[in-house]
Amino acid sequence: MTLAATPTQVPVQVDNDKCIAEKGCTVCVDVCPLDVLAIDMLTRKAFMKFDECWYCLPCETDCPTGAVSVSIPYLLR
């Protein structure tokens, strides 16, 4: 193997107390144009799986409980 695992701080944060993915909600996952969000099968909450964000905000605006917040990726700030 010649592959590294390099961690990175992601711009999309999900408030697990507000996220209702366990009730069948996949809104943020559905609307992301880059398909970078996913539901964690263990916690049953949404999370950002790939650091490929266009900070376009549908995940945040469309979230029915206001659980998602997007910050500008660090490299741009």
């Binding site: 559905d30 609307v31 144009p33």
Partner: peptide, 12 residues
Amino acid sequence: KANVKRSGAISM
């Protein structure tokens, strides 16, 4: 390749 609900140049 995304979701038509929010895809493309005018997603927002």
